Computed example of a mutant assay.
Amino acid sequence: MSARARAGATAWLVVVYAFLYLPILCLVVFSFTAGEITTELDGLSLRWYAELLRDEELIAAVLLSLRVGAFAASAAVIVGSAAAFVLARCGRYPGSAAFAGMTTAPMVMPEVVIGLSLVLLFTHPVFAFLGGRGVAAIWAAHTTLCTAYVTVLVQSRLREMDRALEEAALDLGCAPLKVFFVITVPVIAPALVAGWLLAFTLSMDDFVLAAMLSDPGSTTLPVLVFARLHHGLKPEINALATVIVAVVSLAVVIANRLMLSAQKKRMAAARHAAGISPAGRSAVTLRDPDNRSEWIAHP
């Protein structure tokens, strides 16, 4: 790549990242304003962080969104992993194409359509035992939406997995259920974690389904923010967003460090299993026929 092309690519990268992160930086800065206007920095103060702690409605909405997101992500991982296992391992059978299409349909179907169908389901007199609109309805909707994304992630990982590991364990007498939890689950664990995080993020961020299925006692954070938008937002929303950005950034840093540490351990274990020394050379065990001692030689 020429110097001009490299400079152009760098400039374009800077523009894109500035477009993405400059508004977030402004939001963080404006959260420390002492004034009443959300988009002006009128002195520095922690006033709105204190207001945030006293806003019970906002805190309740955050806790509800966290709770629904955690339950929806966990259910999506369980259901999506089962669906992915069927799609990746069971081959073709009557109705397999229809099952695959129905599994991934929520990814491409407008949320308004999904929300409307679930509203009809939860409000129909025949299904009154479901409880109508509320937290359970939002949880079911988010699980339905997130399961499709988890299924795609886990299915791709299962297709890439070397099945010789499972077959070797079965040949050695390991029960199929134990093979799944001891061999399969650890191998696809990164996809499970990625699917859970993606599902949790989608649930926390969803507005359409939550707005259509919520009742006065089940207002999630996006719905509450949208409702307050009509009356004018206060800088305490900036404070809440800053706290969320800080928590997410810290979680990303910790997750990256854990992933790097786990990757180093796997590479070290692989080198050890292959008989490669830490210096990267193959280690050969030699035996002295006279004194029966052994030592390691590096060719």
Rank of each mutant, 00 (worst) to 15 (best):
M1W: 10
S2F: 03
R4G: 11
W12D: 09
L13Y: 07
L13A: 15
V15F: 11
V15D: 06
V16R: 13
V16C: 12
A18Y: 02
A18P: 01
L20V: 14
L20T: 05
L22V: 15
I24D: 02
L27N: 08
V29C: 10
S31C: 02
A34N: 15
E40Y: 10
E40T: 14
D42T: 10
D42W: 09
L44W: 15
W48C: 01
Y49T: 02
E51K: 07
L53E: 08
E56Q: 12
A61P: 03
L63A: 11
G69N: 10
A70P: 00
A75I: 08
V79E: 06
A82T: 12
A83C: 14
V86Y: 06
A88P: 03
R89A: 12
G91N: 09
R92E: 15
P94D: 07
S96N: 11
S96V: 05
A97C: 08
A97L: 12
A97W: 13
F99S: 02
G101D: 02
P106C: 01
M109H: 04
V119D: 00
L121H: 01
L121K: 00
P125T: 10
L130R: 06
G132A: 06
G134L: 15
V135R: 14
W139Y: 11
W139S: 09
T144R: 01
L145V: 06
L145F: 09
A148S: 13
A148M: 02
Y149H: 13
V152Q: 13
V152F: 10
L153Y: 05
Q155L: 06
Q155D: 11
S156N: 14
A164F: 01
L172Y: 12
C174N: 10
C174Q: 09
L177Y: 03
V185F: 14
P186C: 11
A194V: 08
A194D: 09
A194G: 10
S203M: 00
M204T: 10
M204P: 00
V208L: 08
L213P: 01
L213V: 09
L213E: 06
P216M: 01
V225P: 05
F226V: 13
A227K: 10
R228S: 12
R228E: 14
R228A: 08
L229F: 13
H231Y: 15
G232E: 09
G232Y: 05
L233R: 02
P235W: 01
A239I: 05
A241W: 05
A251I: 11
I254F: 09
L258V: 13
M259Y: 09
L260V: 11
Q263L: 07
K265I: 10
A268N: 06
A268R: 12
R271L: 03
H272P: 01
G275D: 08
S277Y: 03
R281I: 06
T285E: 12
L286M: 13
P289S: 00
D290Q: 10
S293Q: 14
W295E: 12
A297D: 13
